[in-house]
Design a protein around this nucleic acid. Structure first.
Lengths: 152, 152
DNA sequence: GCAAGAGGGTTCGATCATAGAACCCACCGG
DNA sequence: CCGGTGGGTTCTATGATCGAACCCTCTTGC
């Protein structure tokens, strides 16, 4: 484990980035939040090479962020789901998305995070813009925003 | 710009990671939040090779996250400071640190984020655990926590 | 009963990025 | 005139990634 570590850092950001700081890794987690569960779906969604995807999924499982479940025997078929540890990456993912929305989304957010049932938007403080409730990943539904691309 | 992009993704997380998703980049930003400003200080703090640091600083400046200021002429000496765009990465940095504290810090958080003057701790919702106020990067002071390493 | 497709991978060579060390230059202080 | 500080650049070896091809096991349609 010589590379991809930041071994000299007594810092939780560095520790976290050792697990999710590699290229593609956090995008896999984001896709998992959006409901992607299968190898080929991740691969198509991300456009990553299959070898790298195999590596990243294995690493996320080893880190306890994803778990692999058999959903069909003979032939064995697996799906990948977030563990609680993985779901707890939600605030970090949201924070990055909000920053990207603010500075990098010319046409507005490509995806909206809404308080399910209420319709208010998720704020950076993880509250609802309309009713003010504190929100968790379970209270959210997403839909394409103004910056979403039209399908090609 | 063939690599290090995620060009097919209509997603603000992907857009953000194109700027800060490379190895070392977010750690440079974290150091900047902690007050590091000079080339050699970043280099010593991170242990990154000087060539990579040059590349990352240039890229962060191009992205508008850092700015380079002359603080001494003849010989020219520069310091690197966060712009507002850079300071707005604070919630994302905090979210990652909190996640790392929860799951990866065996001896407790290596660094504490405290409400300056009040002494309460920063929560994941960016509020003060003691007085409940909403906090920004300007209201925070940090100090070593229980998981901090003793100097070697 | 045979071909095509879905699902989940592994393997390969070519290219890219990174690490680590050495080197460079301008100035300062003693 | 020697060493130290600040801020870089350049070098080679090694590691990571890309993209494409390949493999195997079922299932479905015809």
């Amino acid at each position: 484990m010589l590379h991809r570590t930041y071994e000299d850092q007594a810092c939780s950001v560095a520790r976290a980035l050792e697990l999710i700081g590699e290229r593609w890794t956090l995008l896999i987690v984001r896709d998992a939040f959006l409901g992607v569960r299968r190898f080929d779906d991740f691969q198509r969604s991300l456009g990553v090479s299959r070898g790298i995807l195999t590596d990243r999924l294995a690493r996320l499982i080893e880190a306890g962020i994803l778990e692999r479940r058999l959903y069909h025997e003979r032939p064995p078929r697996y799906e990948y789901r977030l563990t609680e540890k993985g779901r707890d990456l939600w605030p970090a993912t949201v924070a990055l998305a909000k920053w990207g929305d603010r500075y990098l989304a010319e046409d507005g957010p490509p995806r909206l995070f809404l308080h399910r049932g209420c319709g208010g938007e998720l704020t950076e403080r993880l509250t609802c813009s309309k009713c003010g409730a504190g929100l968790t990943v379970h209270d959210i539904e997403t839909k394409p925003g103004p910056g979403a691309r039209l399908a090609a």
